[in-house]
């Protein structure tokens, strides 16, 4: 490797590693157990919300990815840009957008409230929605790349063997795209797990209902910074484990 590339790569790595190392230094190892025991609710909410949000994102993102990968229609580029928007939007903007549309006084949220008497803000469902909103683009983006890599000739052969569009998708395209889909699931899940801005804006903050780990960390930082460090450590470790395991799964 050329020396100058090595140096820059080293600096890049340092930029990523130093803050994490700083976190490790500040973690109050002796009080770790107590801090974590007190955050059981946040961990539970985080798991429930991130898993449900990933499910929603996969359920909707995979068909969307298929449409983008195989469709050929006017406005496709605009559609793709729209799908990817939440990736670049600040999370708080996502939260405001959700409030404006699906909030109690938003056009759709108001309709849902009138018809079913359900309001999304301040509920776990709202937190799931916020997390789904930010996770969906990641699932879609990666799944679309996966579908694009599928050999279309195989689907054509399947068609000559009597398979209709749904069977070709189910039996040929989907299995071929599994590695990409797995990557999309992991990225989407990680994004849902780390979601903060849209959640606090749209779903609010209530322990046991909408307070996820990132929210708990944010509020603990104001009350008890030590506990915030402990909780941050949990998120870092869990995320690192999952990313490593998933990487192994999809590289193989």
């Amino acid at each position: 490797m050329p020396l100058r590339l090595g140096v820059l790569a080293g600096i890049g790595l340092a930029l990523l590693v130093v803050p994490i190392a700083g976190l490790l230094i500040r973690v109050p190892w002796s009080g770790l157990g107590g801090d974590l025991a007190g955050s059981g609710d946040a961990v539970r909410v985080s798991i429930v919300v991130s898993v449900l949000a990933t499910t929603v994102a996969v359920g909707l993102g995979v068909p969307l990815a298929w449409l983008l990968a195989r469709g050929s229609f006017r406005g496709q580029a605009l559609l793709r840009a729209t799908v990817l928007l939440p990736i670049v939007l600040p999370a708080v903007v996502s939260g405001v957008a959700l409030l404006a549309s699906l909030g109690r006084s938003g056009p759709i949220g108001g309709l849902i409230d009138d018809l079913f008497g359900i309001t999304l803000p301040f509920t776990t469902a709202g937190a799931v929605l916020a997390a789904s909103f930010v996770a969906l683009p990641f699932v879609t983006l990666v799944a679309e790349a996966g579908f694009r890599a599928v050999d279309r000739n195989l689907e054509e052969v399947a068609a000559t063997l009597g398979a209709g569009p749904w069977r070709r998708f189910r039996r040929i395209a989907l299995p071929q795209a599994v590695p990409a889909l797995a990557a999309g699931v992991v990225l989407g899940w990680a994004r849902a797990l780390g979601e903060f801005g849209a959640t606090v804006t749209f779903a609010g903050n209530l322990s046991g209902r909408t307070q996820t780990l990132p929210l708990a960390i944010f509020f603990e930082l104001e009350r008890d910074p030590e506990a915030a460090f402990s909780l941050s450590l949990v998120l870092v470790v869990v995320s690192l484990l999952v990313l490593t395991a998933a990487r192994r799964a999809w590289v193989r």
Binding site: L99, G103, R104, S105, P121, G204, N205, F218
Partner: peptide, 17 residues
């Protein structure tokens, strides 16, 4: 909800949430 600031409490009322 227990909002992160008094300003976001105000915003939630203002937005009708």
């Amino acid at each position: 909800s227990l909002e992160p600031s008094v300003r976001s409490v105000l915003a939630k009322v203002q937005l009708g949430e």
